[in-house]
Write a protein that binds this DNA or RNA. Structure first.
Lengths: 121, 121
DNA sequence: TGCTAATGTCGTCACATAACGAAATGACAG
DNA sequence: CTGTCATTTCGTTATGTGACGACATTAGCA
C-alpha cells in the first residue's frame, strides 16, 4: 500500500514525472511546484519510503532521482503506466516547461547554473 | 488521479483482488470484508468511477467484476502490477479463503447458494 | 396494493494527511 | 568556532476520507 498511497497525491506524481529527465536538486523541485520547501521535503521522503525515488546527498544539497539498477526493475511498470495514463497531462506538461526554464537559469540576474545546483541554487 | 486514488485504499484493493476469480454480488463482498453495506457500496462506486470495475445489475442484485473487453486493456497493466506487488499478501490470502467459504455456503443452516446470489443472498 | 430485501445516497463523526512556518540538523566558508 | 544556507523535522491548522447508521430507492413476492 505504500506505493499506491504515495501515488495518490498529485504533487508526488508531478515530482515523479519531472524526474524522468534525470536527477534534480530539491530546490529546483521547490521552484517548479511552488510549494514550501518543508512540504516538498515531506513528499520526497514519502516517495523515498515507497522506493519510488532514490537520494544522493552531495554536500549541502540533496539530489533525488528515479530508482536505478535493481530497484528500477520493480518500479518500471508503475512508471510506464503512469506515463501512459497521464504523461501528456496538463500540469505535467506545464511542469516540464517550467523546469526547462528553471534549468536554463531564466529569470535570474546572471548566467549561472551550468547543470547542477551549485553555484547558486 | 482517479485511478491512483482508488488504489490508495486497502479495502478497495482487497475488492479488486477478490474479483480476479470472477464477478461477485455486493452482499458477498460485504460478507468477506465485514464492513457495513453502505461502506462497501461507496468503495464500489469509487472503483467504478475509476473504471476499475464494471457493474451488472440483475433484479435486486448488483454484480461487480473486473473490466471486460476494451476497458480491460487499459486496466490490465495496473492489475498485473498489483498482483505481483501484493498478490500473496496476508489479507488478500485470507480474503480468498473467506470468499471460498462464503461461496460454498458454509456456516449456514441449509445447503443453498449454488453459484449466484439467489436463492438466499 | 403493500411487504421485504438488496443497493445506493446522505449526514455525521473520527481520523488521516497536505500545507505552512518555526526551529533543528548538517555542511561548507570564513 | 561561528555564521550561513539547503534540507529536514516538528507542531499546528484546514481539508479530505473512511466508517457508520438512517433513510431513499427499486425489484420481486404475497
Amino acid at each position: 500500500m505504500r506505493v499506491t498511497k504515495a501515488l495518490s497525491d498529485s504533487q508526488r506524481v508531478r515530482i515523479l514525472m519531472m524526474l524522468r529527465g534525470g536527477e534534480l536538486c530539491v530546490c529546483r523541485i521547490v521552484e517548479v511546484l511552488a510549494l514550501a520547501p518543508s512540504t516538498v521535503s515531506k513528499h520526497l521522503s514519502l516517495l523515498n519510503e515507497a522506493d519510488l525515488v532514490e537520494v544522493r546527498k552531495d554536500g549541502r544539497w540533496a539530489y533525488y532521482r528515479l530508482p536505478q539498477g535493481d530497484a528500477m526493475k520493480a518500479v518500471r511498470p508503475v512508471l510506464k503506466w503512469l506515463e501512459s495514463a497521464l504523461g501528456e497531462d496538463g500540469s505535467v506538461l506545464r511542469d516540464a516547461d517550467r523546469l526547462a526554464r528553471v534549468l536554463s537559469g531564466a529569470g535570474e540576474g546572471s548566467a549561472r547554473r551550468t547543470k547542477a545546483c551549485p553555484k547558486e541554487c
